[in-house]
Simulated scan of single mutants.
Amino acid sequence: MSKISFPIHLQDKIFEIKYDSDIVSKIVSYFPFSESEKQEIKSILNVDFSGFYSIFTDTVSDEEWNQTKDQIKKRFNDELFDIDKKS
């Protein structure tokens, strides 16, 4: 399976990329991508892609993201992995 490589500024915001027959079918980000980020991704994929999803619905600036991304990723992953332990 051929994996798409995104620039670090986009890859950093992506939680998960789903593939269907070697084609990107879904991109899940922590927060919604800006329109310019979506256009950049579409350009990289070289298709009219619409499979954008986000875990959180709030929009955050790049400055806010850069200040809190490590905490958000850690907390989200810790809580996600603790789900099995709580049941």
Rank of each mutant, 00 (worst) to 15 (best):
D78W: 08
T57N: 12
F52V: 01
I27S: 00
I4F: 01
S50D: 14
E40D: 09
S2K: 10
I27M: 01
K18T: 10
K18L: 08
Q11L: 12
I72C: 06
I27L: 08
E37I: 02
I4L: 09
F81C: 07
E16H: 15
L80N: 10
D48W: 04
I41A: 03
K69A: 06
F49K: 05
Q11G: 00
D84G: 12
Q67I: 00
I83F: 09
I55S: 00
K74C: 15
L45I: 04
P7T: 08
I44E: 07
P7R: 04
F56K: 03
D48H: 08
D78S: 07
G51V: 12
I4T: 02
T57G: 11
M1G: 11
I17G: 01
L80F: 15
S50Y: 14
K74S: 15
S5G: 07
F31G: 05
I83D: 03
W65G: 00
K3N: 09
E64R: 10
G51W: 10
N46A: 12
S2R: 13
W65D: 04
I55V: 08
S21W: 13
I41N: 01
V60T: 08
K69T: 00
D84L: 14
Q39I: 15
Q67C: 06
K85L: 09
E64L: 08
D12S: 15
L10V: 06
Y19H: 03
E40Y: 06
K73E: 10
D48N: 12
K86E: 12
I27T: 01
K69N: 09
D20L: 14
K26H: 09
E79A: 12
M1E: 13
S43V: 10
P7L: 02
I44L: 04
K18G: 05
T57H: 09
F49L: 01
S43T: 14
N66P: 02
F52P: 05
D22L: 11
T57A: 08
I44W: 14
D58H: 11
I72K: 02
D84K: 12
D70C: 05
F52S: 05
F33W: 04
D22R: 10
D48L: 07
S36L: 06
I72R: 04
F76L: 06
W65I: 05
D22A: 11
D22M: 13
Y30V: 00
L45K: 01
H9E: 08
Y30D: 03
I17C: 06
I4H: 04
T57S: 07
K86C: 06
V60C: 00
I17A: 06
I4N: 05
W65H: 04
I27C: 03
F52E: 04
D58M: 13
E64I: 05
D84A: 13
E35Q: 14
I27K: 07
D82H: 12
P7A: 08
L10T: 02
L45C: 01
S5D: 08
K3G: 00
I4R: 07
K86F: 10
I41S: 07
D82V: 06
I27E: 04
L80T: 11
N46D: 13
I17D: 00
S36I: 13
